[in-house]
Amino acid sequence: MSASSAPAKPRSFALPSHLTLPVLLGAAITLFWIVTALSVDLWPIYDPLDMVARRLMPPSAEHWFGTDALGRDVLTRTLHGARSSLIMSCAVIFFAVSIGSALGAIAGYAGGFIDNAIMRLVDVTLSFPPILLAMAVTAALGPGLENAAIAMIIVWWPAYARLMRGQVLAVKAREHVEAAVAGGAGHARTLIRHILPLCWGPILINATMDFGQVVLLAASLSFIGLGASPPTPEWGSMISEGAIHFYQWWICAGPGLAILSVVLGFNFLGDGLSDYLDPRRS
């Protein structure tokens, strides 16, 4: 999603009645963070890794969010934190959705043994509390952003497999699909051309809603020390550093608000999207 196409989005695809205040707010917040993530290098602000002032300074005119234990500017680091957070979450959602919906579609379309095998794997994976599974996998692979991302993909794909399978089962029973099969369309063609195009709505809604949750879990893993490693500006690990300097509350105020706003933004947006794509639900 490019920054320039985003503002046109509401005008081109939603009716005014869907543009409620929360949706607009969600779009504005999301847009702000996407633009920040893409362009923060060009901003006339401090360097996120430089010591720019005395350490542990409370918020002031020069340093709105204060400075951290190494004298770095907290606001700068918070803005830079958008990058790793959003890139990682995008990657996680992208792969989880791709893998999950591919397997779910195959399970739903094929049925029988393949369906059973895939869905039992889904059941078992979903039996783990997400954070514990993510922690175990990250720890096993070794701490780091990429490994945390892999762990989160492992945590998230089953939900999309389940969702997609349900969608495919519902669409498969429709007449036009039976007609396509009767007309001699092959399996791959039937699935890709006749079934999948009708299945994306709920997947899209879920992905939007989940984005915030992915940001949360990614930050949690970094907070624990399994994600980003120290000098990198990342919200979770910034809060973790802030927790040590407990009386300097401002160190974690910035990144905390950043996480909260991203998660809220995507939740608002997801709500709006689901009202738009599925009016029955509202």
Partner: peptide
């Protein structure tokens, strides 16, 4: 309610601890 499910607990915990305890 939405803020409740959107706030990272490791952050709200710190903030509340700071406010109510410190």
């Amino acid at each position: 309610a939405l803020i409740g499910s959107s706030t990272p607990v490791f952050w709200s915990g710190l903030i509340l601890l700071y406010v109510f305890s410190v």
